[in-house]
Design a protein around this nucleic acid. Structure first.
Lengths: 277, 277
DNA sequence: AAAATAGTGTCTTTCAGACAGTATTAA
DNA sequence: TTAATACTGTCTGAAAGACACTATTTT
């Protein structure tokens, strides 16, 4: 295939190429996939795209696509970084209104055979955003939807349980499961939960993030004191909400994100006594 | 380049290919790089290879190379997984005696221009092994060496300080810095330290691992009690060493790795009061 | 005998979690 | 008035860290 452009030269040069020049090998495709998470209706939801073409036509997939060596946006032509590619895919699928508050690399998946068409190595990214409207129907993102992760029947092993209606294409069930593990764990020791709320926010809103992601009720009083005791987690605005909660209660104080990158001491997840052995 | 093999067909098909077929784009090379760490002479050391060819001839690099779509080992021909490729590179560079006790994916680096020859996306792996002999001179691994990480003058920003004699090629200083961050942090909440010692081991040997990786002296008595109090971290063999320490002291009890995958409660790193802000 | 090391005991401080209690707001 | 919620106070137990101490071994 691509060998054609190379003049092998003498044997030494050929060996050099075999060791150092990838054009001597069949190509490997590089893609990015994005696990975009948000909280809607008190549920953790993930952005999925319905596939229209084989393979896996009619199945659901994480938004993603091939990394483009050339990027044309503002007129200038330059190459595209991996994180840029992830952000681009997200915007293309979910619309320009989705501004992820946080984007980080999750991991890279390159097991042979994960894409039946050819060897594909996929760099997965994890994105978090506050509650977003549905992707605009009729736009480029017509086939994108926010789906509650509980509706996907994921097992601990990163597979979907039989009988789940929305089937995930490729190894996306595994990637999503890894992403969920990562989020649940990062809530403990980073201020990541603040990426799921819009500023200013209340301590209760922050607690709802933890409860939704961890799937466990937390003690409101202890949570409140704990959050305020961690230096740099949140920062008071001095304001309060304009009204109490929908079912009563006093007005709550409002906060902004603090400047801490790590939470010390950490907010440990309850019910983890049973260790992973 | 590779466009030649594709017949563009009508416009619809061309668009399909542009979206789904990587052969419509210039190729991106996929490599694996390995950050192999061990403890020798009470120092944390990393396996580096001296580059003989441009670019960066004479500089030092992490062991690594292109992922081979086809792998020929036991006669059968099949594709090579990313982790397999990492293990293969490690064996090729350090010799077959290096058996990593632990191998995990670190991250993927694909910034345009990181390799001046072409667009290269590199999947980095992190490997840990107990103390190993030097790579055999005269073998394939003639140019590989264990180098103390302190000799590389890494700054927090993942760059080498001016005046460092051993210069790291490509963005390998950044990859190594990320790897060191990962190790230091994983010692806290996983039993990873046991990957740096040979079984059976003493609590003091385990403490030396922590002290070397963290670069801080720990309180021997408190460390001892702490390790034994974490369920599943270590498991007693019932044996003791045959002699005391080289400068006196009683014989120490010997332990094996336990079955815990996570340490609860964690072994928190001291001197971290100053948070990352 | 002296020095080094393995391992244990104990005290103080911090923190997580349970629980109670007060003030404020909506229905 | 009732129920819900925001926030604070207090107690208990777990655990980290400082320090002291004993026992065992080498020099």
């Amino acid at each position: 295939v691509a060998d054609a452009v190379i003049d092998p030269g003498d044997e030494r040069e050929r060996e050099l190429l075999a060791g150092y020049d990838p054009r001597a090998f069949p190509p490997i495709a590089v893609t990015v996939d994005v696990v975009a998470l948000t909280i809607r209706d008190a549920e953790l939801q993930v952005l999925l795209v319905r596939r229209g073409e084989p393979p896996y036509a009619g199945w659901w997939a994480l938004p993603g696509g091939f990394v483009r060596p050339q990027r044309q946006g503002d007129g200038t032509t330059r190459e595209e970084d991996l994180a840029e590619a992830a952000a681009r895919e997200l915007t293309e699928e979910a619309g320009p209104r989705l501004r992820a508050a946080h984007l980080e690399q999750l991991g890279t998946y390159g097991t042979p055979g994960r894409d039946p068409r050819m060897r594909v190595v996929s760099v997965a990214y994890l994105a978090f955003s506050p509650e977003m409207p549905d992707p605009t129907p009729g736009s480029d993102a017509a086939d994108a939807q926010w789906v509650p992760v509980t509706a996907l029947g994921l097992s601990e092993a990163g597979q979907q349980k039989p009988g789940t209606s929305r089937k995930l294409a490729f190894d996306h069930a595994r990637i999503l499961a890894d992403g969920l593990d990562r989020v649940r764990s990062k809530l403990e020791y980073t201020p990541l939960a603040t990426a799921f709320v819009t500023e200013p926010f209340t301590i209760s809103e922050l607690r709802e993030v933890y409860e939704t992601v961890w799937g466990e009720k937390l003690h409101a009083g202890n949570f409140h004191r704990k959050v305020l005791s961690v230096p740099g987690f949140v920062e008071s605005t001095g304001e309060t909400t304009q009204a109490g909660g929908p079912r009563g209660g006093p007005r709550a104080r409002l906060y902004r994100r603090g400047d801490a990158r790590l939470l010390h001491p950490a907010l440990l997840r309850p019910g983890q006594e049973e260790e992973v052995r």
